[in-house]
Design a protein around this nucleic acid. Structure first.
Lengths: 318, 318
DNA sequence: CCAGTTATAGTCAACGCGATTATAAGGCCT
DNA sequence: AGGCCTTATAATCGCGTTGACTATAACTGG
């Protein structure tokens, strides 16, 4: 209080540190085709826009322009990460990018024009283990090993080899779906994704399967996937992606779509049931093929009641 | 790619959206006095500084000026949150604040002058449950209930009452140490902390015990505490706060200081042991009072080996 | 009516973890 | 020196969670 000229007091310095602030949104929905993300430019970029100073907060600014631009009402919104790396965009412009994860229900897609939904797994085909381990992993492993061997010193070789093994479940390790970001960053480091060659690193090996995106949008998407896969295990955010009424199997399929792996059905039902997160509506639907299924709705009253340690899903160990 | 004039393309708009970017650091260490945070202005504020455009990234910028200013080498650094609420600082200036959590070891405190260490629990006395439930909670409960009753409609009354009960362990609920942020925000909403009256809300009841800070620094500190209390349960970050050699009880005391609650000793040792996070040095220390204790060191090799689902601590349910 | 599909309930065993007890090894006070 | 205090370290018990599996019910379509 009394020491007005302390060593550093925020904007007490006259030097201009003005920067530009961008908001980048990863808007997620799940439909029959799987988990989708809202994209622009035919799937080559995530929707982004400048932070409007007129808005109260960053979140309200994001919500406003995404809803305006896409007609999508956003449910849950969560901040992901703030980047300001110098050479992020390739240019010499200084931009701070604040990325967000948003969940919605994909009603009236493409109604207001340009944006479209693209499956996660178009960008990260190695992340979908719902039909067993993707065959492409077996082609990926030797390339990662080769990259590890290419290091200068033995310690780095060992470290690369270990990180690759952990992230990509080599040597009979268990697949960990939450490592989506580490996996993408490892592929980037190994110059196995198309984005890596933009940094001037022209050791352009044939990139691994999977669509690339402009700038670092694919990395942001990987961040969102990892965050969401982690979050659904302890917070009831899945319901933001569900229609008002749903069957338990539909709920399970949604969780499976997000996590990229299959869940044991009886255990899933038990866990959902004993947490009292859903309530029966009494009505049933015959549209599911076999025996008509109960329709459930989300039990809103419980939402804040279990602030933590709720909504566990049987996704623990393999 | 081909649609150059899509609905919105980032900084394609000519309007100026320049803002000022500040970095705010919550630097944490643990000593005999408990968990401490690095502060300036006699504990009234967190160290903060402008984002230097000269640096590669936000993290390196933060690390540079904190180490320069305080002489503290920072170990682990993690981004907390980015704020840009209009009336955060009270002024009409537009500032984006990017807050960080950093862990260090508190060597040579105050060597380079101004900054000093202050205990967490000076700011949040209700968060320390290491000696049982703080008596002040019992004085707090009726004030929260009173606040809940003061709502206009019944639904809000019920909601306030429920949130207060969950956050502050009313009605024989279990104390959840991870709700530190929710608790502070609830007290702010109830105008029971000194910061609340700055917004013009002059219904100045006597504030709850606990030091306040300038601007929203206390909220940022609460965010850091909540994040760290959650993180130590699944990532081995505690070791960033430990000296190179330590006994298991010292490690336990550190975790207890952070989480604000006591841990069962045998269970703690079992969990630490079976995770192979530490290794014996063979040497012992007699400085602990009773039987000489083994000195351990952190098993660095294991750090990235268990990227997730490691370092569990017996802090689950009460 | 039978085969196929899905819904729903129940069982069993392994593991994790909280709680407790027991034993070892040093310091300090009388 | 001996007894008491402190802390360190090891071992055990029991409950609850949860992963894997089996069985039964209800409906559709041929």
């Amino acid at each position: 209080m009394d020491q007005a000229k302390g060593p550093r007091k925020g904007r007490a310095i006259g030097k201009t540190n003005d920067v530009n602030a961008d908001l980048i949104a990863v808007v997620v929905a799940v439909n029959d085709a799987g988990p989708c993300v809202l994209t622009i430019e035919q799937g080559a970029a995530l929707p982004s826009g400048p932070f409007e100073l007129a808005h109260r907060s960053l979140q309200s600014s994001l919500r406003a322009w995404v809803e305006l631009q896409t007609g999508q009402p956003l449910g849950y919104i969560e901040q992901l990460y703030t980047f300001a790396d110098r050479d992020r965009t390739g240019g010499n412009e200084r931009v701070i990018s604040i990325s967000y994860l948003a969940l919605t229900r994909e009603e009236d897609a493409g109604a207001s024009g340009r944006p479209s939904w693209t499956s996660w797994y178009d960008y990260f085909p190695w992340e979908d283990h719902r039909s067993g381990r993707p065959p492409m992993l077996e082609e990926l492993w030797p390339r990662l090993i080769e990259w590890a061997q290419g290091a200068d010193d033995g310690a780095t070789r060992f470290d690369r080899r270990r990180r690759a093994a952990v992230a990509f479940a080599m040597d009979d390790r268990a697949w960990n779906e939450e490592l989506a970001l580490q996996r993408y960053e490892l592929l980037y480091e190994a110059a196995l994704v198309e984005e890596a060659k933009r940094g001037g690193d022209s050791a352009i090996l044939a990139p691994v399967p999977g669509r690339s995106m402009s700038a670092d949008h694919r990395r942001i998407l990987a961040t969102a996937i990892a965050r969401l896969r982690s979050k659904i295990k302890y917070r009831p955010v899945v319901f933001e992606l569900m229609p008002p009424l749903f069957t338990l199997l539909q709920l399970q399929r949604t969780v499976e779509a997000l996590s990229g792996r299959l869940i044991n059905k009886p255990n899933f039902r038990r866990l959902i049931g004993q947490q009292e997160l859903v309530e029966k509506t009494g009505t049933t639907t015959a549209e599911t093929g076999g025996r008509p299924a109960q329709l459930y709705r989300f039990h809103h009253a419980i939402l804040d009641e279990r602030p933590v340690a709720g909504t566990k899903l049987p996704l623990a160990r393999a």
